[in-house]
Design a protein around this nucleic acid. Structure first.
Length: 596
RNA sequence: GGUCCUGUGGCGCAACUGGAUAGCGCAUCUGACUACGAAUCAGAAGGUUACAAGUUCGAAUCUUGUCAGGAUCACCA
């Protein structure tokens, strides 16, 4: 039983005994640094149930706790705050308990329902960019956090491999490609295909401009540009299964997949199951019938099918076009149901999709609920803000994007420059160095993105490189490396036999106590991060821990400590902090180095 | 126009979900490498939490209104 649970029981007892009143809840918070104590009991909320002076009540509770709970070694009351001093022995004992727990912080019990986390889900007509990076990092991290919190997780993505967008690239390649392949050009497949997407847009704009010049209304011109009509024709041919079209489609998608694979590998993300839109785009049509029967949907005179959500504060939404073809919503309904069929243990889903689709998901979830699927209550839209550039939105067609591969390379390059300058890597081979630079560069990038609340939009300025100092990934990696350095030295000492010391009846340095308190918060931070689908909470926690450790490191001698017992415990504490850093960063998808 | 999200020192972010004197990093200024790694640490300066009312013992957090930025409201995806 953890301390807070014990204290809750005891506080309730105290109140029951002294006021014969049953308190429903007791609120705690860590004692602020400016006051003496470790844990604070909030007295104010109790005043709703007990009449009296908060200071007096606090003192009565405090006295009772000091008497009854071993861990409480003192208290003071300031206004409505009862600050409890917790004994060093308690913290030492707590630390002994977690010291050798290599899985510390992770939930032991696995919860019943698995959860499917969808992220990435790119279109296959262009390379991944910074926006996808945010999506990927968030999705991957949330999946890892959910696992740590005790959920079974399936990572998935739906690859948008069909549609007008890929046809545009295909057409442009046919037209201007001259038989180019990734092999012949040395270009990454996704880049090559992306170039033709841009080429299409250029040709298209030219045609539109010409038409407008010839006196045609711009809106009409946009719809009637020959090249666009051809692309639409191509899409129809694809849907009809035209051999040649499908073959080209397969080839070009194949190039893209190979390119994506490389990017994902570099980024360090992975998936358990893949869905392809070309397999799922027809799903959901049969559900329309079901919805009509249940009177959730209705049919209009022209044959189109709708749902009326005005009673829920939304509007009317189309489910099926009058020509009987599906819209995006139809697919999403069908795909969601399909996923549950494929994985019956799944009880919920997380969709990592930008906030521009907030409304779409609101509607989707509501529809599934109205259709009567009980898992509809466990669907979450992990909505995140756009990554914008100082110049505005990123647009692939206009080439104003920060390319994912380029960015990762730049980050690695910057890390290399800084490392070379500091020159601490004697004895490292070139490959070791390269791996390390990548680890640090990506650490900086990932932390930079993940430490921000997902909801907020990010303004990314490529001119100002991501920091490597202060509240950054490399700062935390550095601390980890430093700890490893201590441990290497401690090992040498181990051989002298000092590890046989035992006993823990000693006082803690205030910095040690703070560190243990910080460590204590890891499991609940994981749970909180899982509930809120927020890697930012893990990032912030890790930063606080590391800051605390660096302060400890500065003020307290570890290997220089003469008392063998203390030295041993400080080494153990450092090791534990290192483990938690590694574990927490693992949840963010960031690696940590032994040296840097 | 309707709906949703965001607004915290110059800049970038926190604040344990309603608690104490709003924390941290960059940038600026001051100190600390013959100390376990200075990608570090210690300190200074910098705030009417966009604005205004309200709710209560207590508001950055909840309510309402205003302002600013963003998103969204297609038989597009």
């Amino acid at each position: 039983m953890n301390l807070q649970t014990i204290l809750t029981i005891k506080v309730k007892q105290a109140i029951l005994k002294q006021f014969t009143i049953e308190l429903p809840t007791v609120e705690f918070q860590p004692t602020r640094k400016d006051f003496e104590g470790d844990i604070t009991v909030m007295v104010f909320p109790m005043l709703r149930h007990i009449k009296g002076n908060p200071v007096k009540i606090g003192e009565q509770i405090g006295a009772f706790l000091e008497q009854e709970v071993d861990a409480v070694s003192g208290f003071n009351v300031i206004q409505g705050f009862l600050n409890l001093v917790i004994s060093d022995a308690y913290y030492l004992n707590f630390f002994e308990g977690i010291k050798n727990d290599s899985n510390y912080g992770f939930a032991i019990e696995v919860k019943k329902n698995a959860v499917m986390v969808e992220y990435s889900s790119p279109n296959t007509n262009k390379p991944l960019h910074l926006g996808h990076i945010r999506n990927n990092l968030l999705g991957y991290s949330v999946a890892e956090i959910l696992k740590a919190s005790g959920r079974k997780v399936y990572k998935t993505q739906i690859i948008n491999d069909r549609g007008i967008h890929i046809c545009k690239s295909m057409l442009a390649w046919q037209r201007f490609g001259d038989g180019e392949t990734p092999e012949s050009t040395g270009l990454k497949g996704d880049k090559l295909v992306g170039n033709y997407y841009v080429a299409f847009d250029k040709a298209y704009k030219k045609q539109v401009a010409q038409k407008v010049k010839g006196g045609i209304d711009p809106k009409v011109a946009e719809k009637e540009a020959p090249i666009l009509l051809e692309a639409q024709e191509m899409l129809q041919k694809w849907e009809a299964g035209d051999k040649e079209t499908v073959a080209l489609w397969k080839t070009m998608n194949g190039w893209v997949y190979k390119g994506f694979e490389e990017t994902y590998k570099n980024l360090g993300v992975d998936f358990d199951t893949l869905y392809y839109e070309s397999d799922t785009y027809l799903l959901g049509k049969d559900v329309v019938e079901e919805g009509l029967q249940k009177d959730v949907f209705y049919r209009r005179d022209d044959g189109s099918v709708w749902i009326d959500l005005t009673d829920d504060g939304l509007d009317e939404k189309i489910i099926l076009r009058s020509d009987g073809t599906a819209v995006y919503m139809t697919q999403d309904i069908g795909t969601a149901i399909q996923r549950i069929k494929d994985r019956p243990d799944v009880g919920g889903m997380v969709y990592t999709v930008g906030n521009e689709q907030d409304y779409h998901f609101k509607v989707l979830f509501l529809i599934l609920k109205k259709l009567g699927y009980e898992w509809a209550d466990s669907l979450y839209h992990l909505s995140y803000g756009m990554v914008d550039l100082p110049s505005g939105k990123m647009k692939s067609r206009e080439g104003t994007v920060v390319d994912a591969d380029d960015l990762m390379n730049d980050m690695t390059q910057t890390a290399a420059e800084i490392s070379e300058e500091l020159g601490k890597l004697e004895g490292y081979s070139n490959t070791e160095k390269r791996d390390l630079y990548k680890m640090i560069g990506l650490g900086a990038l990932k932390y930079y993105i993940l430490k921000v609340d997902p909801k907020k939009r990010i303004l990314f300025n490529p001119e100002e490189s991501v920091d490597f100092q202060g509240n950054t990934g490399p700062f935390i990696q550095y601390t980890y490396a430093r700890i490893q350095s201590i441990l290497r030295k401690a090992e040498e000492l181990d051989s002298l036999g000092f590890q046989n010391l035992t006993g823990m009846n000693r006082s803690l340095h205030p910095k040690e106590k703070e560190l243990i308190k910080q460590l204590q918060g890891y499991p609940e931070t994981i749970q909180l991060a899982a509930e809120n689908l927020s890697p930012a909470l893990i990032a912030n926690y890790t930063y606080d821990l590391v800051k605390e450790f660096n302060s400890f490191y500065q003020q307290v001698s570890i290997l220089g400590e003469e008392d063998g017992q203390k030295k041993l415990q400080r080494v153990a504490l450092s090791r534990k902090v290192g483990q938690v850093i590694k574990s927490a960063f693992g949840l963010l998808g960031i690696e940590v180095p032994d040296r840097m």
